[in-house]
Simulated scan of single mutants.
Amino acid sequence: MKNQFYNKIGINPIIAAVNSMEKLDLAIQSPCEIIFLLCGNIFNLKEIIHKVKENDMDIYVHIDLMEGFSKDSMALKYIHENLQPDGIITTKSSLVKKAKNMNIFTIQRLFMLDSLSLHTGISSIQSTRPDAVEIMPGIMPKVIKKVYEDTHIPVIGGGLISDKEDVIESLKAGAVGISTSKEEVWHM
């Protein structure tokens, strides 16, 4: 799973973040290789994952945002074994640890609000060792660089990415990719 993620992000570092069902088909039709699913529920998640995969794209499910699932190891196991996304995204360190124990590709999403959240986030990454980290907002090149230098975990810049300059600056700072819900950025 790790190599698959890194190969796809190497082909196209822009990840389509789908935050509404209306955007799913647009993301599938985009040149992106990876979708971060930020919406969905217990009734439609299987269909969404199948649709994305039949279009040769990878899908990573933000487990915290899926309606109808508890945030525990049984939900992780069910999603992994029965729905089979390529991995999960979560803000919860406890879920990162549980997912890693199940060999699920895990992206830990961290919100960087101030120096305390940066310090706490780096400590969390060093403790949980996710497969990748998504830093939000992704328009902070210095923070992206520091997180990567301190953890050596691949970093994705996400949130507030709105144009080509944001993409370039994040990638120059060391991000392996960027995630955005902006459709125009998907086609860069």
Rank of each mutant, 00 (worst) to 15 (best):
56 D>K: 14
164 K>D: 11
184 E>G: 12
49 I>G: 03
159 G>L: 06
135 I>V: 15
56 D>T: 11
180 T>M: 12
34 I>K: 02
125 I>D: 01
119 H>E: 13
100 K>L: 03
40 G>H: 09
132 A>T: 04
94 S>L: 14
33 E>N: 08
140 M>N: 01
5 F>H: 07
162 S>H: 07
96 V>H: 06
122 I>G: 03
104 I>W: 10
108 Q>H: 05
173 A>W: 02
81 E>K: 15
156 I>D: 02
5 F>W: 14
22 E>C: 03
123 S>I: 11
17 A>K: 00
147 V>Q: 00
70 S>P: 00
56 D>L: 09
28 I>P: 00
9 I>L: 15
157 G>E: 01
97 K>E: 10
111 F>R: 01
182 K>M: 06
161 I>A: 06
51 K>M: 01
147 V>A: 05
46 K>W: 00
69 F>I: 03
177 G>V: 06
172 K>C: 00
184 E>M: 08
61 V>G: 13
4 Q>A: 12
31 P>Q: 13
108 Q>C: 07
107 I>C: 13
50 H>V: 13
102 M>I: 12
77 K>H: 10
24 L>W: 01
91 T>L: 09
158 G>A: 05
188 M>D: 07
115 S>I: 14
24 L>G: 01
74 M>A: 13
119 H>M: 14
39 C>G: 02
90 T>R: 12
49 I>S: 15
170 S>M: 11
176 V>L: 10
156 I>R: 03
98 K>T: 13
114 D>Q: 04
16 A>R: 03
26 L>G: 00
95 L>P: 08
145 K>G: 03
23 K>R: 10
117 S>R: 07
